[in-house]
Design a protein around this nucleic acid. Structure first.
Lengths: 299, 299
DNA sequence: AATTTTTGTGATTAATCGAGTCACACCCCG
DNA sequence: CGGGGTGTGACTCGATTAATCACAAAAATT
């Protein structure tokens, strides 16, 4: 990575972290020089000299630069470690009280029964990863995961699989290539990993969108499902997930996976109940029947 | 704290963390209701209904809310803990690479010799606390701290004092009341704590500003000084600090502290050198002479 | 069936904020 | 006496946000 790229990367990151463009440019420049006047900073950073002063004031009040009040003012940045630490504290000082405030606002009403016909959609990479982890942690009997795009297989996800594995939950993973198999087996030794018989994954979605592929597909205890599509173009992952044995999305996904994954006499995702409660009729365990379930549509 | 206050606090924090006003309002509303349509959110949050959709899209892409794509769309927030965790990850994912990028940009030129005539100024609470810690950690012989405002005596600072104490550095603390004495002695048993003889602290600054008082005053090894003023009105702390035995600010501060703190035959902050190098003349150890050192002025 | 809400999209306006430029009054140096 | 560097403040322009409105389709009411 060229120093130029690093320069731009730092600029971008600082702006994402809430600094304005001028502030970011000034800070990056200062980090590289130990000590400078407004003009020097301006020349180096392309920030109009007259605006350097404003930016520096903000940076000073953020604890990121120090100012020498002399006839020609001089500016210098705080040591890098300290600057990053200051930023980190700044966020923590807001995240912690935020969590407290939100928890008190939270209406702890119905504790989310596991049986609904809803299908929810999520967009962000992080959000989907987070849900994946949560769902995996709730697994009591079985976790079936199909990895359609290698980039979904993060260390965090591998850890969640290993955890489930150690809890005695059976873990079945479908993968598109051997590399994935190796990583999964390294993390969760007792997992079963399938590599073949997954051709149906490619081109599953409406042929309209080109290049979009299955990102991940997670079925837990035959009753909770999460399916994501991955667009390599925009690096965007979009997921839908649903709970409940009779959830439409769960039904058709179970069908799909039974066709695609049940090898060696092993039926995957069979809907045996582990909890005693009989939520509703048994219309979920045999033929779904309806081929155009309104809740199974995405987008 | 009333629920109304918590509501506003959460709003404010979310916006500081980068959300737009509408996004923050929508999220806060969702946290309180488990499930809602655009109209319900709009009524509750004062966000124009037609804009709720936009806000929700952003929140979804941030991993903070989930959307049920049904005839009347329904929105719900991710569990609070997950939401905060998602935000935290978001920041960490930027802070870590930022630190790397900045370190590579950093020009490790002159390693900052201890002898300069510069006086630097800092503004933020965090920045000053950070510098205080750093300076204290560098102490080899003696740390003299005067606490003018109780709020500067954080646990972090007490910890730094205790560390120095255990390293064999002599710690002298001047305080305005007994409460401070007790806290310091609890943390650093070997520290000497003065409570009286500090009346000169009040009204030290130009009489122009009312209510502004001395925040902290730190002298390390007789050669590094940090002085801060604290404005209770705005809760703002502003500090200047300088290094070097012959630094103007160091000189006059040493004079001040000798007058104010040397009790029991103990001369505080005497400029004995601990390093062998003879940087410049010995004009620092007796009478400062010049009463109007240009580098000793703040603001 | 007729009427009224609700829903989702889009265009449009108004206000605010950030980026960028200019004019000025220094001050210091040769 | 210039000329370049310094610091402040006013100002323009453009993008982003907050806020309103018009509209068509779809429930829900009556």
């Amino acid at each position: 990575m060229s120093p130029d790229t690093r320069h731009d990367e730092a600029l971008e990151l600082l702006q994402q972290l809430g600094l304005k463009e001028y502030e970011a440019r000034c800070l990056v420049t200062l980090v590289g020089v130990a000590d400078a006047t407004a003009k020097q900073v301006s020349d180096e950073s392309d920030v109009p000299r007259t605006r350097v002063y404003d930016a520096m004031r903000v940076l000073e009040s953020r604890g990121l630069v120090e100012v020498q009040h002399a006839k020609p003012q001089r500016f210098r940045s705080v040591p890098v470690g300290e600057a990053v630490e200051t930023l980190r504290r700044w966020y923590d000082a807001r995240l912690d009280p935020l969590e407290t405030a939100l928890r008190r606002l939270h209406d702890t009403g119905a504790p989310e029964t596991g049986e609904t016909h809803e299908v929810w959609s999520l967009l962000s990479r992080d959000g989907i990863a987070s849900r994946t982890r949560q769902i995996t942690e709730e697994a009591e009997r079985e976790v079936v995961l199909v990895v359609g795009t290698e980039s979904v297989l993060t260390d965090e996800l591998l850890g969640a699989l290993a955890d489930a594995n150690e809890r005695g939950v059976s873990v079945v993973v479908g993968a598109l290539d051997e590399g994935i198999r190796e990583r999964v087996e390294a993390a969760a030794p007792d997992a079963e990993v399938f590599v073949s018989e997954l051709e149906w994954l490619r081109g599953v979605e409406g042929a309209a969108e080109e290049g979009v592929s299955v990102g991940r597909l997670l079925l837990v205890d035959g009753s909770t499902i999460l399916v994501s599509s991955f667009d390599p173009e925009s690096s965007t992952e979009r997921a839908v997930f649903g709970r409940g044995f009779s959830n439409g999305l769960v039904l058709i996904t179970r069908r799909l996976m039974e066709t695609g994954l049940s090898r060696g006499g092993r039926a995957v995702g069979s809907p045996e109940r582990t909890d005693g409660a009989a939520h509703d009729g048994e219309h979920a365990d045999s033929e779904p029947g309806s081929s155009d379930d309104p809740e199974s549509r995405e987008e």
